[in-house]
Write a protein that binds this DNA or RNA. Structure first.
Lengths: 156, 156
DNA sequence: AAAGATTGAATCTTCAATCTTT
DNA sequence: AAAGATTGAAGATTCAATCTTT
């Protein structure tokens, strides 16, 4: 089998696995009456952050969403009371997103549903080469990010 | 590091790598004046299929899209002349999607853009354990699919 | 003029309901 | 009644334009 061919097949297996597992998580969350995966991603990113807050620009990277897409998502989450916007004193162009107490409570309800799907469908199938895979995935992300940040990049 | 923790980190590396690489491909396609990735996925699935045609139901799995989402996508692609719908003689409920000559021509223009991104950002980073990874990804997909087809599964 | 963020208009996607065929 | 597929209405995402601050 030519190497090019296998690369494409592996990529297809990759997107296929991703799509199916994400669909499973979304379905499980919806079945539990919980909001979609994107909310979980924002909430964990904020919960992990230093002061439970994160610049909106930084968040957009974590969720792989356009700035405007994130802005709308934060609108909905703020309306639901799980995050709050706060202006940045140092640089008044920037804004912070802050997770609220309600946000923490919601996160705790979403966490087990999310985790259950990962532990059932993802971790066991990968265990043998999990560390190697993780390292490889980070390399892929770094490589893709290297050409992604700007629109038309000048010289990388 | 607890195993649970690493499982989640690997999953995050997985989604992150996926999101960034898909964004890269979409950007490259758009920069070349070509339609989005979903078109490519439909066209390759049809080109690979036996008579250059595929039941619409089977297609929906290949692109991980809802039935209605696929229906709309096929509307746009048919309007652009790259696919054609044909009714199924055997079972007149079903319909076929057929790739046209124009569809083949478009696929040939999209292929190198798609392939270039994969070969640059995906294949080299994985090469050492590519075969193992591919096998693992297929196991993930099988596992996720195992609980996906129906709506509310009985035994959680 | 450039960066961070938001808004209006357009596009894409999904849910629920519908239609046809089995 | 169930399966394959499509449609109307609603929801989410993106592009381009705008606003504020640096």
């Amino acid at each position: 089998m030519p190497r090019t061919q296998q690369g494409l097949e592996t990529w297809q297996a990759f997107t296929n696995a991703h799509g199916l597992l994400v669909a499973t998580i979304e379905r499980d969350l919806a079945a539990a009456g919980l909001p979609p995966l994107s909310w979980y991603e924002v909430l964990t990113a904020l919960a992990r952050a230093d002061e439970a807050q994160l610049r909106i620009h930084a968040l957009a990277q974590a969720v792989v969403l356009s700035p405007s897409g994130l802005s709308r998502l934060l609108d909905r989450m703020e309306r639901a009371g799980v995050i709050r916007r706060e202006s940045c004193k140092r640089d008044r162009r920037g804004a912070f997103a802050v997770i609220t107490d309600e946000g923490h409570a919601l996160l705790e309800r979403m966490e087990p549903v999310h985790q259950q799907a990962i532990e059932q469908h993802f971790v066991p199938q990968l265990r043998d080469e999990e560390s190697a895979l993780q390292a490889a995935l980070v390399r892929v992300a770094d490589s893709a990010r290297g050409e992604c940040p700007a629109d038309d990049e000048p010289g990388v």
